[in-house]
Simulated assay, not measured.
Amino acid sequence: MPNQSDSNIVTADALTLLLHNQHALGAAIEELTHWISGTGADDVADNAVVALETLDTNAKAITDAIMRLRQL
């Protein structure tokens, strides 16, 4: 049976992978936003920016959780 520390490490590692995925999705959305904005679809680009802001906010919370788990 794994101890609490092992569980924290596994959880932090999984969250780190999810955070990397989130950063990759954010980068892809940002590239698409630039392209969409260039086509004149500003409303769509604005919606994508809102999605990026959500990703950024959640990434900060995930990072904080990872750091707390790694300190335990």
Rank of each mutant, 00 (worst) to 15 (best):
S5D: 05
K60R: 12
N47F: 04
A24H: 14
I66M: 03
I29L: 08
M67N: 15
S7R: 15
T63R: 04
P2N: 05
G40R: 02
E30P: 02
A41W: 04
T57Q: 10
D56S: 10
W35F: 12
T63A: 14
I36Q: 05
L72N: 13
T33R: 08
H20A: 15
A45S: 13
T57M: 10
S37I: 00
N21W: 05
I62C: 08
I66N: 03
H20K: 15
G38S: 07
N8H: 07
A41R: 11
M67L: 13
T54A: 11
Q22C: 09
D64A: 14
D43Q: 11
T33W: 00
N21K: 10
D46W: 00
L52F: 00
D64E: 11
N3Q: 05
G40P: 02
E31S: 12
L25K: 08
T16I: 04
Q22Y: 11
S5P: 02
L18E: 10
L19R: 15
S7K: 15
V10H: 03
K60W: 10
K60Q: 12
A12D: 02
A61T: 13
E30A: 11
A65F: 09
A48D: 02
I62M: 14
W35G: 02
A48Y: 07
I66Q: 04
N8V: 01
H20G: 14
D42M: 09
M1Q: 10
W35A: 08
R68G: 05
L25W: 09
V44Q: 04
H34F: 03
G26W: 01
L52N: 01
N21M: 10
L32F: 11
T63H: 05
G26D: 01
M67H: 13
H23K: 13
N21F: 06
I66K: 02
H34P: 00
A14H: 06
H34Q: 12
R70F: 13
N21H: 13
V10E: 11
T63N: 12
T63S: 15
A65E: 14
A28T: 06
Q4A: 13
L32Y: 12
I36L: 08
T54C: 07
M1L: 14
L72H: 12
A14G: 07
D13L: 04
H23D: 08
I36W: 05
D64I: 01
G38P: 02
L52C: 03
T33G: 12
A48F: 13
E31L: 07
I66R: 03
D56K: 09
A45Q: 04
V10G: 02
I36Y: 05
W35T: 07
V10Y: 05
S7D: 09
D6N: 09
N8S: 06
A12T: 01
S5K: 15
A28K: 07
T54S: 10
T57N: 09
A51L: 09
W35H: 09
S7I: 15
